[in-house]
């Protein structure tokens, strides 16, 4: 009993103050890439960045762009480019509600639009997530698991992780979706009651990541289910995921999430 109390006192309360206070990442953190097409064009015939990128995330035509959905944040492009066009900033905000928004051409962070009003009324203060590991290497799964620990503490936002898809509101998928998981994933999606969300977690779930082009995988969730938010990373830092969720649910203190364009109650997209 005494050891219990002493240990408890020693451990203290460890939950981060974020989002009430800004979170500071260390200098070594490989965060959101920024593209700085300087006035000078690339040196003639230079394709160092293309050769150095493990997942072909960089395109040079028609203009220099880095696809965050493919990026694994390895920083090889930073080291290989002679003109210093690419940098990896300290910013952990990389989530986006649109796939196009992940293709970076400058140093602006991708945008997460908040959910429609009708969904915010339901999910704004309480949400349950069902995670499915569809071929994930373990990174995304472990980082998501870490979000329920005492440092990040998802529960303080009313967000919880559930066992049964019937209890869930959001299907969080990680991994490049091997064929052997496809049917299980689809059945899991169908078991979520409406309204429901699908979020792709990590480079593999967005584009296949390092496994893009494999004969046994589907190159990400998009080819199978309608996706509501993309969270890049390999694996994404828990704060990146948390930031994505909070912006989606309009829970950030500065209320910075833009609204969705179009009709107030957009009917749910489906591949059916």
């Amino acid at each position: 009993m005494l050891t219990w109390l002493i240990n408890r006192a020693a451990q203290g309360q460890r939950t981060l103050a974020y989002p009430a206070e800004p979170a500071n990442m260390p200098d070594t953190y490989l965060g959101r890439p920024t593209v700085h097409p300087t006035g000078t064009a690339c040196p003639p015939d230079c394709q160092e960045c293309l050769a150095s990128c493990p997942t072909d995330a960089i395109t040079l035509q028609p203009d220099i762009s880095l696809d965050l959905g493919r990026c694994v944040f390895c920083s090889e492009c930073v080291q290989s480019c002679p003109e210093q066009i690419f940098k990896l900033s300290n910013d952990f905000r990389t989530a986006s509600t649109s796939r196009e928004g992940l293709k970076l051409r400058n140093d602006e962070a991708p945008v997460v639009e908040k959910l429609q009003e009708s969904m915010l009324r339901i999910f704004g203060r309480s949400m349950r997530i069902r995670h499915v590991s569809a071929g994930d290497c373990g990174g995304c799964k472990d980082e998501f698991n870490a979000m329920s620990n005492i440092v990040f503490d998802l529960s303080r936002f009313g967000i919880g992780v559930v066992a049964s898809p019937r209890h869930a509101d959001m299907l969080l998928v990680s991994g490049p979706i091997p064929e052997n998981m496809r049917v299980a994933l689809e059945k899991c999606y169908l078991a979520l009651p409406q309204p429901r969300l699908v979020v792709a977690l990590g480079a593999c779930a967005i584009s296949g990541g390092p496994f893009a082009g494999s004969a046994f995988c589907h190159n990400g969730v998009e080819s199978i289910l309608p996706v509501d938010m993309y969270i890049p990373g390999c694996p994404p830092h828990p704060l990146t995921v948390l930031d994505g969720f909070l912006r989606l649910l309009d829970r950030l203190p500065d209320g910075a999430s833009p609204s969705r364009e179009g009709t107030a109650d957009r009917p749910e997209r489906s591949t059916r």
């Binding site: 503490d153 509101d169 309204p195």
Partner: peptide, 24 residues
């Protein structure tokens, strides 16, 4: 456990959410 935890009225918010969801 050393976490902040949800507010004590969180179960009401959870029940409100569930009552607005569909059924499967």
């Amino acid at each position: 456990a050393g976490r902040k935890g949800p507010p004590i009225w969180q179960p009401y918010l959870d029940l409100a959410r569930l009552s607005r969801k569909g059924v499967v």
